[in-house]
Design a protein around this nucleic acid. Structure first.
Lengths: 232, 232
DNA sequence: CAGTGGTCTAGACCACCAA
DNA sequence: TGGTGGTCTAGACCACTGA
């Protein structure tokens, strides 16, 4: 375990015992107590600042952040997302087949139009009730034989274990749509009901697009949360 | 100007002239050429990595990131947001008055229920056509006399210049809603049309809530974009 | 196995805040 | 004005990549 990561976790438990806006020890004190250099302390505090757990005022100190607000969203699977919301995740496979890339898919995945693309379509459940419709598209060349596999469990686990694919960062775009008849029925909503549509392009560690996913959420059950910061 | 910031800008122009996935010089080379320490180079590269301009592979190098995907959203005003999208921003004041905090407002702004809150309600235009309805709420104690001021221009400029209030980070929550008759009319949309609703709590440098804003966007004209990353 | 990014150290000075 | 976080240096070793 890296020292700054270990220190980060140690500080996090200290922080949890403190009230909002309480001052942390000075960087020099933390360095002395934990027997590390001040740079290492700063690495740990940088991470805690990014995650929204502390804030810093030059010349004054480092303080415990407000807790009223939700924490910043990170890259999670549907299952993790639901569990974080206190719901039991479930899944029903609707389709798993190979299609050809249209213009948009080709551009986003760095393919040529008509290149083969594997599509996995699933209805996702939370506490046994429909939560969203998920349409995953992957370049067929990256996932040979995927459609024959067991797709009832975690797709991301499968992609990592069997194909070595890992989404390292994703660009998301959120819009509001009206449900068509098919989607409304699958989600158990009235036709024309408003829904939240999230389009996501996932990139691996080498910044190569490996998936494009469109997810349509029931507006009455789901909201997207995230943090924005001023560039310093 | 801090050295790592200067270096960041210099590297950014170098990057713009390179193709995707092209390798940057090594950290040690950059340090030597720009006569700075390697730590300073790393600070600059950290920022470029966060902004999605480069990616790094341990043992291999630092590379120019993919450009197909949109860049991460930062904290911007409506005007900046529209200009970034190539649209001309406009505004029409609907209401500016003092109301009392309901339970939700009080909790989010750290006030007591019934505390006075200033509300500024505006219809926002892009290229002269309605884009969204914006409802800003501010603790009245922070902005005495605001309702009498000229609210046709930039509210954030006014808050900064006159009251020293600056939003440093914001927690956003995005949902899909159906428009009621009033909102539909104001936005020039059919009733029950789907719309994107963004609720935002803005915090200042000291992590104190200073505003809560609810914005209702026309779904046919607007989408919310942001980046998510895996925790390393 | 040579070279890369990742981590860590021990120091120094600066900009800023609060008393 | 003393103490804080912010910046910067010059070095060292480690973990990993790719030829």
């Amino acid at each position: 375990m890296r020292k700054h990561e270990e220190l980060r976790l140690a500080l996090l438990t200290e922080i949890r015992a403190l009230p909002e806006h309480a001052p942390l020890p000075t960087e020099r004190d933390i360095a002395a107590v934990h027997r590390v250099s001040r740079n290492t302390v700063r690495l740990a505090l940088d991470a805690l600042e990014t995650s929204g757990d502390v804030y810093r005022i030059q010349g004054a100190g480092t303080f415990v952040a407000s807790r009223v607000v939700s924490k910043s969203a990170t890259l999670t699977s549907f299952s993790q997302d639901m569990e974080a919301r206190g719901l039991r995740p479930g899944s029903r496979l609707l389709a798993a087949d190979t299609v050809t890339a249209d213009e948009r898919l080709a551009e986003q995945l760095g393919l040529a139009v008509e290149d083969p693309v594997v599509r996995v379509s699933r209805l996702r459940l939370a506490d046994d009730a429909p939560m969203c419709l998920e349409n995953v598209h992957l370049p067929a060349s990256l996932v040979p034989g995927l459609v024959q596999r067991d797709l009832s469990g975690s797709l991301y686990r499968l992609l990592l274990d069997e194909y070595g694919l890992e989404v390292h960062r994703a660009e998301q775009s959120v819009t509001a749509v009206e449900l068509d008849q098919t989607r409304a029925m699958l989600l158990g909503m009235p036709r024309h009901a408003a829904a939240l549509e999230v389009e996501r392009v996932g990139l691996d560690q080498r910044d190569r697009p490996v998936e494009m996913t469109t997810t349509t959420y029931r507006a009455d059950r789901y909201e997207v949360r995230f943090t924005v910061r001023r560039r310093r």
